[in-house]
Write a protein that binds this DNA or RNA. Structure first.
Lengths: 343, 343
DNA sequence: TTGTAAGCGTTATCAT
DNA sequence: ATGATAACGCTTACAA
């Protein structure tokens, strides 16, 4: 018994500790700990006493101490390739909505579409001993893959579906979305179909593959009508690529864009240059971003359930973190073609 | 000496500890700790040995243990009112860029423009004993304000400038930006000027105030020409409000929008309804979002230095966290009027 | 400049 | 069902 609590000891936070709560409640610290964590072995009566004491003292656990003692944090790491795409913002929001109420801290890592950066983030965040991992897609370095596997940390993959059907994932088939795009355009009587994609991540590529596959199947595929660039997707870039495509291949009568911002840019340049959409060329976007429905003409797009993906992935992870396994690890949330004025 | 390291002890992480690094380097744990933290009292020779050992073992500190022992985390809490506004994304990115390399973990809180939610987030995050705080603007609950003050945690305010000039802040004068908008429109010969704002946060209001003030000064102010709504800002809403304003006040010849997305929506509806911009009505946006320069007509806007704000605020905070004070706490980064085709 | 001892606040273990 | 004890991995205080 050296001194009283508010000693101005720099090693102390000044906040009430579990010990103090326990003393006030007249129980041992460990009982207080159990009571607060909702561990069933504690008598209801004591639980109440402890909760009251905690409330009275305004007690909040010290996450550092908890993490140290239990070798487990309360944090979940979410890695996304971009934040400038509204797409991922909505997903993140949904994840927060599910995880925060359960007491989890969400650590967000943006790897800017770089596999190496993703690996680094993963390595760094592993130091925090996260309880769970939420990763985007399946395209990562071998080393990152191994880290995840070796860590044994529960992990759910978002956005795409595991072809192997072995990993826990929540998303939709990117390939199939590409096929749908092609079939829609073909059904509109289009015959010279182009694909324009930027930010060549795995999913953009997969979409392109689905698109190509459907065209080949219809005997309409022309490899010249594919314009891909690793530059980051944006409205400005979309306009630029659109003009480039129309200049090189004036006979193109439909374009599928890997992202709505590209398609929006195309619509804008089409207007500026008097190119009639959809009369001369149909424009189809992807993701159905909020502005798309308001473009002139209103942009047709494939709407993706990114909010639902975030929510379901987080719930999925909650199950895994609770130690349960999941019967059906692959959750396909599908997508929806929104036909508006541009196709 | 009970057992060897990889005992499958559930209380242990399996990762190498500082002790092991110290042993390998042939020094005491505390020396290893000091060496790794770059504390100057350690002999250069030993520092090298320790670093080598750490590297060899692939050592990474346990943040929980560090936080517990030092009563200080390595985390910085950033609170923003929204993530769906690209504006804050860019700011966050810059903050990350500055803070992560220095070993800080960035905790992001989105309070959805709700003062109460901000207060809650603050309370929750305080449990993590953050080393620093990055807050948006000055409009918060009294209780939140007190928490920040009482905590003594270094804090930098972003986006606006403290009228009292006492708080550390990095931003620009929102009022002055509103004035600039009005003066520009007036200088273009406009006489019936309207202001349309959504998501009525403090800064939108301040901008409106500056706008109003300049109009009054020029004897051009008409309170009927202000359209404010608490609904969240979006392209769709902008179009809607624009049409509403033009229907109610067909004589309006210029509109300043509190946000670019609103202005973009206005441009789109103007086009759809054959309202000529800027001939019939000039449209001026705010923030200069990426798509604005590509609109038809290209949107004039007030460009804000959100990336620089994030960077400078983070650097500012770094200084404070290092225990230094700042001579000039108020950093005004200004703004820039971009005149394009819509005004 | 380096090391010893102790403690940060919590939870796992094992006994009762 | 509850508690005593030790331990998690690191850093502060102080001694050498």
């Amino acid at each position: 018994m050296t001194s009283s609590k508010n000693d101005k000891n720099p090693r102390t936070t000044g906040r009430p500790t579990l010990n103090e709560v326990a003393r006030l409640a007249g129980v041992s610290p460990i009982t207080a700990s159990r009571a607060l964590r909702g561990i069933s072995t504690v008598a209801t009566e004591l639980v109440e006493k402890v909760q009251q004491a905690a409330q009275e003292l305004n007690y909040v656990v010290n996450p550092a101490a908890r993490a140290l003692a239990s070798a487990q944090s309360q944090s979940v790491v979410v890695l996304v390739p971009s934040l400038s795409n509204l797409l991922f913002i909505e997903t993140l929001e949904a994840i927060h909505q599910v995880l925060r109420p359960k007491g989890f801290e969400v650590l967000i890592g943006n790897y800017h579409y770089s596999r190496d950066e993703e690996e680094n983030l993963l390595r760094n965040y592993m130091a925090y001993q996260p309880r769970g991992l939420l990763l985007t897609g399946f395209d990562r370095t071998e080393s990152a893959r191994r880290m995840v596997e070796a860590s044994k940390i529960p992990c759910v993959y978002m956005m795409d579906l595991d072809p192997g059907a072995g990993l826990n994932c929540v998303g939709f088939s990117q390939v199939s979305a590409g096929e749908t795009a092609a079939r829609h355009l073909i059904s509109r009587g289009r015959r010279k179909l182009a694909y324009i994609g930027a930010q060549l991540d795995q999913r953009t590529l997969l979409r392109g593959e689905g698109f190509r596959r459907a065209l080949q199947h219809a005997n309409l595929h022309d490899p010249d009508l594919e314009l891909l660039t690793p530059r980051p997707s944006s409205v400005g870039l979309g306009g630029e690529l659109f003009l480039q495509m129309m200049a090189a291949h004036p006979q193109v009568d439909a374009i599928f864009f890997g992202n709505d911002d590209l398609a929006q840019g195309a619509l804008l340049e089409a207007m500026r240059h008097g190119i009639k959409v959809p009369q001369q060329v149909a424009v189809l976007g992807f993701n159905d971003l909020p502005a798309s429905a308001h473009m002139v003409p209103r942009l047709s797009s494939i709407s993706t359930p990114r909010e639902a993906i975030g929510r379901r992935a987080a719930e999925h992870l909650l199950t895994l973190m609770a130690g349960n396994t999941i019967a059906r690890p692959v959750v396909d949330l599908g997508f929806e073609l929104k036909v508006r004025e541009s196709t």
